Computed example of a mutant assay.
Amino acid sequence: MGKGVLLVNLGSPDSTDPKDVKTYLDEFLMDPRVIDVPYWARTLLVRGIILNTRPKKSAEAYQKIWWEEGSPLIVLSERLRDKVQEKSTLPIGLAMRYGSMSIKKGLQELVAKGVDDVLLVPLYPQFAMATTETILVLAEELQTKYFPGLKLSSLPPFYNNPDYINVLAQSIKEQLDTIDYEQLLFSYHGVPERHIKKSDVTKSHCKIDGSCCKTPSPAHQYCYRHQCFETTRLVAEKLQLKEGTYFTSFQSRLGFDPWLKPYTDRTIERMGKQGIQKMAIVTPAFVSDCLETLEEIAMEGEEIFHEVGGKDFTTIPCLNDREDWASLLSNWIENWVAHKDPLVVEA
C-alpha cells in the first residue's frame, strides 16, 4: 500500500482581480460550516449582499500584501511543502480548502503517484468547524465519490502538543529577544459563539462564561475557544511570561452575531489608550502568514495602535517555512508511517 501526505491550508484567490476575489469569497462564504445558516439565508446574505460590496474592498486588501510570486499564503505553504518533502521519502502534496488548488486535485495528484493511503494534515493547530472540520468532511465526500479505494486518515489538532509548543514558543522568543515590549497579544481568528456550542459533544458544557474552558471536559476535544486559550497558556508557561504581560483576543469577525471575545481590534485600542507604548502580537491560529496577519494585523492593527498613542507595534511572523516546523511535520509523518500516534512525544 503506497502512503502519501496531503497538507491542506485555507486557500487564496488566484489573483487580486476583484473577479477572482469574488469567485474565492463565494466558495468560502457559501460553505455551510463557515456561515452556518440555512442555504436560502446564506445565499441571500452572501450572494445578495456581501458579494455585491466586499470583493472590491477585499481585492484592495490583497493588493497590499500580494507578493511578486503570488499569494503569500500559497507561496509560504509551497515552501513548507518543499521542505517537508526534502525530509520525507513519501509523496507530499499540497491543497487548499478553497480556490483552484483544490483538495480533489491534491488527492488526484497523489493517486497518480501510486498512493492509496493518505494522511491529511489540516494546517490548523486548533479544531474549528470552519477550518479542520470542513476539510475532513469535504475529503470524505470526495473519497466516497471519486476515490473509493483510497484510505484516509488525518492529523489531529496539535494545539497542545509539546513539540509544537516548543517550536511556536521558540519562534516567538526569537522575536521578543530583539525588541523591548510591554504587552504580548495572542490574536486568534474569531468564530461565532454559536460554533462553540454546536461543537460541544456534551451539549451542555460550553457556556462561554469564563470558567468552562478551564474546567476539564470531553467538550474540549472540539472546543476552539478552549484550545486557543490553552495554546496561550502553554506558550506563556514555556516562555515564563509574567501574568498581566500577555493577553488572548480574537480577530476577523463578520456580521452582527456575537463572536468570541475579546475582539483584537478593540484590545489593541484599549491597550494604546491605557498608555501602553510598546506591544507585540502573534497569531497562533495561523501557521502561514496571510491576509489576516499581513494586512489585518500588521497594517490595520498597527494603524489603530498608533492612532490611540501607541508607539512600537511588532508583528511576530507565523511559523511559515521555518526549518524546525518542517522537521516537526516530517517527524509526525514518520510516526504515522510507523503506525504510531502521529503526535506522540518520544522519550
Results as ranks from 00 to 15, higher is better:
Asn335Asp: 09
Ala41Asp: 00
Pro72Ser: 05
Ile172Asn: 01
Glu300Val: 01
Thr215Gly: 00
Asp163Lys: 15
His339Asp: 15
His195Trp: 07
Glu69Gln: 13
Tyr188Met: 11
Val21Ala: 03
Ile92Asn: 07
Asp289Ile: 05
Ser204Lys: 15
Tyr263Val: 01
Ala112Trp: 02
Val191Glu: 03
Gly93Lys: 10
Lys173Met: 08
Gln143Ala: 02
Asp163Trp: 03
Leu136Gln: 03
Tyr181His: 14
Trp259Pro: 10
Cys228Lys: 06
Ala112Lys: 15
Thr23Gly: 04
Asn9Arg: 08
Val118Glu: 11
Ile165Thr: 05
Glu334Leu: 15
Gln183Ile: 14
Glu78Pro: 00
Ser211Thr: 15
Pro317Trp: 08
Glu307Ile: 02
Lys207Glu: 13
Lys278Phe: 10
Thr23Ile: 03
Gly309Arg: 09
Gly99Gln: 06
His220Ser: 05
Pro13Glu: 05
Gln227Ala: 07
Val191His: 04
Leu123Asp: 08
Pro13Gly: 07
Leu241Ala: 11
Leu136Met: 05
Ile196Gln: 11
Val115Gln: 07
Glu307Ser: 15
Glu346Asp: 14
Leu44Ala: 14
Lys242Leu: 09
Ala130Tyr: 04
Gly272Asp: 06
Gln183Cys: 04
Ser249Thr: 12
Val282Trp: 07
Ser199Val: 03
Pro157Glu: 07
Val84Gln: 12
Lys173Gln: 15
Thr132Gly: 02
Leu6Thr: 06
Val8Leu: 14
Lys198Glu: 13
Pro317Met: 05
Leu76Glu: 08
Lys151Asn: 14
Tyr222Gly: 00
Ile304Asn: 03
Tyr246Leu: 10
Arg194Gly: 00
Glu296Val: 03
Asn160Phe: 11
Ala347Tyr: 06
Gly310His: 08
Glu302Tyr: 02
Leu185His: 02
Glu346Tyr: 13
His306Asp: 02
Lys311Ile: 09
Phe147Cys: 05
Tyr24Trp: 04
Ile208Trp: 09
Lys145Val: 12
Val21Asp: 02
Phe247Tyr: 13
Gln108Gly: 12
Cys228Met: 11
Ile281Asn: 05
Val46Ala: 06
Lys242Val: 11
Val37Thr: 10
Cys290Lys: 01
Arg33Gln: 02
Asn331Trp: 04
Arg81Asp: 12
Lys19Ala: 10
Met129Arg: 14
Val75Pro: 00
Arg81Gly: 09
Ser102Thr: 15
Glu140Asn: 13
His306Ser: 10
Val282Phe: 07
Leu294Val: 03
Gln183Tyr: 06
Leu138Tyr: 00
Val308Ile: 00
Pro156Gln: 11
Ser249Cys: 15
Glu193Phe: 10
Asp20Gln: 02
Gln240Thr: 12
Asp17Phe: 01
Ala59Ser: 15
Gln240Trp: 04
Val46Gln: 05
Phe247Arg: 14
Lys151Glu: 13
